[in-house]
Amino acid sequence: MYALVLSLISSLLVGFFIKYLKIKEIKNLFVIVFVNYTVAIIVCYSLFNEAINLETLSNSVSYITLSLGILMPSIFYFLNKSLNKSGLAKTDIFQRLSLIIPVILSFWLFQELFTWSKFTAIALAFISIVLLLYKKSTKDENFNTLHLIAVFIGYGTVDTLFKILATNKNIPYIAALFLVFIFCAIVSGLYLFLSKGKIQKKFIFYGLILGILNFSNIYFYMKAHKIFSDSPTLVFITMNLGVIIGGSLIGKFYFKEKLTNNAVAGIVLAVISVILLALIQIDIL
């Protein structure tokens, strides 16, 4: 369970850090993103260099690692566009509801056993997401469908691909993770070149911090999937609900955002959902 908790904490810190920075210009964003993946490469190799060699890297090259290398930095672009065109409320809802993609695929790709207990927990999870995010809704009807759909599909696909990567016994996952970071750095470097981003020291520093947090998040997320390989739904839902609940609490106590009755009800349902999934995992339900 420690891997899931550490991944959740890292993910919360990543979200907090990005929100704290309030990066508006795309070129500045990709300076941070590029440095972030460069740092992730260095940290990954420094910690696990014995598991990274030509043989393990060659065994890690696949459509999964390449797809993740393209998708992960690309999501930053569409996320930024969606925030500017559609606003935080709609973007946040589409990002979190992307959970439906890996959850549904869990029963198809990963042969997870379907039970009515799991169905109840999943239903409560989605209701809680709607309640937690509804508080951010606005009357502004401006939105860009393409960017919202890109965020929805992008996050759902990345979650699913990481699950496939973590549970594929033919792929050494440390070397695969290292390779993903390399592909991400190349793609984000290309985005940075195209956006003509100016390298400033403060953005390099931000990228250093984000790189360490992001590496921790992805590494422990993959490790959690390996540990709970028989119950990917537990990982998917716990991570998403944990990020939303944690983000709501951080918003209230740090950013002084109001916690509505809908949000409180959503947190209660989310906790119930995660508890149900945990009880299912240990065969009590």
Rank of each mutant, 00 (worst) to 15 (best):
140 D>K: 03
219 Y>C: 13
104 I>L: 07
142 N>R: 11
134 Y>W: 08
134 Y>E: 02
162 F>C: 01
103 V>F: 10
143 F>E: 11
212 I>G: 01
139 K>D: 14
149 I>P: 09
193 F>G: 04
215 F>T: 02
194 L>A: 15
231 S>P: 05
201 K>Y: 11
143 F>D: 00
104 I>T: 12
224 A>S: 11
173 Y>D: 12
227 I>R: 10
208 L>Y: 01
134 Y>R: 15
136 K>W: 15
183 F>D: 00
201 K>S: 13
156 G>I: 00
124 L>R: 06
185 A>T: 10
204 I>D: 08
170 N>L: 09
235 V>F: 06
202 K>M: 06
228 F>H: 06
144 N>A: 04
129 I>Q: 10
122 I>L: 09
120 T>W: 08
234 L>G: 12
161 L>R: 06
125 A>M: 08
191 Y>R: 15
213 L>V: 01
167 T>N: 11
134 Y>C: 02
131 L>T: 05
189 G>S: 10
233 T>A: 09
152 F>P: 02
121 A>Q: 03
183 F>R: 02
193 F>Y: 14
180 V>H: 02
164 I>L: 14
237 I>D: 06
102 P>T: 03
119 F>Y: 03
218 I>S: 05
105 L>H: 10
167 T>I: 14
125 A>W: 08
143 F>S: 11
117 S>K: 09
240 N>T: 07
163 K>P: 04
170 N>G: 12
135 K>H: 02
221 Y>F: 15
175 A>E: 15
117 S>V: 15
225 H>T: 03
225 H>L: 10
104 I>Y: 05
157 T>L: 12
168 N>G: 03
139 K>A: 10
177 L>E: 06
144 N>E: 13
116 W>F: 14
208 L>G: 04
238 T>P: 04
107 F>H: 03
191 Y>E: 09
157 T>V: 12
182 I>F: 02
176 A>D: 12
117 S>H: 13
228 F>L: 00
164 I>Q: 02
228 F>R: 00
235 V>K: 07
226 K>C: 02
189 G>W: 13
194 L>G: 12
111 Q>M: 06
225 H>N: 10
225 H>R: 05
225 H>P: 10
201 K>L: 15
114 F>S: 04
141 E>S: 14
165 L>M: 14
176 A>T: 09
235 V>M: 01
109 L>F: 09
150 A>C: 05
199 I>L: 09
184 C>V: 05
231 S>M: 15
113 L>G: 13
230 D>C: 06
164 I>T: 09
108 W>Q: 14
229 S>P: 03
204 I>L: 15
102 P>A: 11
161 L>V: 14
188 S>P: 07
241 L>Q: 12
163 K>V: 01
137 S>D: 13
210 L>I: 13
229 S>M: 09
216 S>R: 11
162 F>L: 13
232 P>L: 07
178 F>G: 02
184 C>E: 11
